[in-house]
Design a protein around this nucleic acid. Sequence first.
DNA 1: TCCCGATGTATCGGCCCGATACATCGCAAC
DNA 2: GTTGCGATGTATCGGGCCGATACATCGGGA
Lengths: 210, 210
Amino acid sequence: MLELAILGLLQETPMHGYELRKELATKLGTFRAAISYGTLYPTLKRLQTAGWITESASDPTMIPPMTSKRGRVVYKITADGKERFADLLAQAGPETYDDAGFGVHFAFFSRTDRATRLRILEGRRRRIEERREGLRDVLSRAAGRLDAYTLELQRHGLDAAEREVRWLEELITNERSGRAPAGSGGEIDLPAEPLGDAPPEPPSPHQDRP
Amino acid sequence: MLELAILGLLQETPMHGYELRKELATKLGTFRAAISYGTLYPTLKRLQTAGWITESASDPTMIPPMTSKRGRVVYKITADGKERFADLLAQAGPETYDDAGFGVHFAFFSRTDRATRLRILEGRRRRIEERREGLRDVLSRAAGRLDAYTLELQRHGLDAAEREVRWLEELITNERSGRAPAGSGGEIDLPAEPLGDAPPEPPSPHQDRP
DNA sequence: TCCCGATGTATCGGCCCGATACATCGCAAC
DNA sequence: GTTGCGATGTATCGGGCCGATACATCGGGA
């Protein structure tokens, strides 16, 4: 899962570990809390061994307020890595639908084709519907067996589940009708983000530096 | 965390692993998905080594449709275990306020004194407020830098955070005014005394073993 | 000058998960 | 009656991920 996230971020631009972690935290929002370094560095090493990324010494592409000549390691995605990223993005296993997995996939939806987006959205919806039904069962059948606090917990969980299903329904409807996420206010005046209204097809002409 | 949950359930009644897992799943609702056996059994072993629980062969207290004379192992909490449970219930570290930790603590609120309940509720609120502020920052400051899907994810996360803060506010208010959880049924003020205002439904008749 | 906080890389022990492998029971089909 | 099968039930293993911890470097203020 984290593998997908890292590959996705490095596809936008090369980074070192610290930046990676920060981007991860903001981009993944609630569904995935900030990643730990105890996870990040071993994973980077793993990706490197697999050949999906390479490391290099400090690099002119990094952000200005940084000085150089440090032990910083900048990671960059390889051609194999991009292939791997595309594979991971498209294929959806059971882990794609839990909180963390769904969050990561969703965060890269602008690089995913519409069919895959719909598949993932619907899979997630099914997952949450199951959770919702389980909660309803407990609340109707086992209500007398549980104390007031436990019941309140179930109720809150049920509410959140119903709300998420509604959210997903809306997203699915939008996808089917070819609209981008509804959201409030403005969207997409990004320099290089071609997520259009009508074009059902290929996003992401994101590339590296010259 | 799981340690607390197991000790809490075994305090209600002795159980074997399979039951434990089922109870865990229903009692902990959304905050904590069903526990894996790959976690459960090692943890039980750990608790046993520590002396918090003991195992014994099949037992007349188990549910009727079950036959005996099987390899089933029934776990029972010890006196030390009860002490341990009380300690864990009362003390609150940082892990008490993440999703899983809070869920477990909350599920046992009927066995927790009011001061501790308030402390935990307020700690959780602070945690979610921080998450909420982070999300607001991203949405106001970094909006232009992110694509529409990522923004939608943040918006949904922000909505959930705001909602949870409101939920917590309500619970805190109720605690302060001496009421039980608002929802549908009042009950429980202090451990093991399920007397409520006007319970629409029969409150939990679970008992402790002498 | 000297320390301090932000930046930055890295490891270690441990929790927890998914996959997997077994054994036993109730029961229905043959 | 025995064969097969799904539900029940216990257990282990490899691996992902986490929190704590240890360092090392840099800019800037006391």
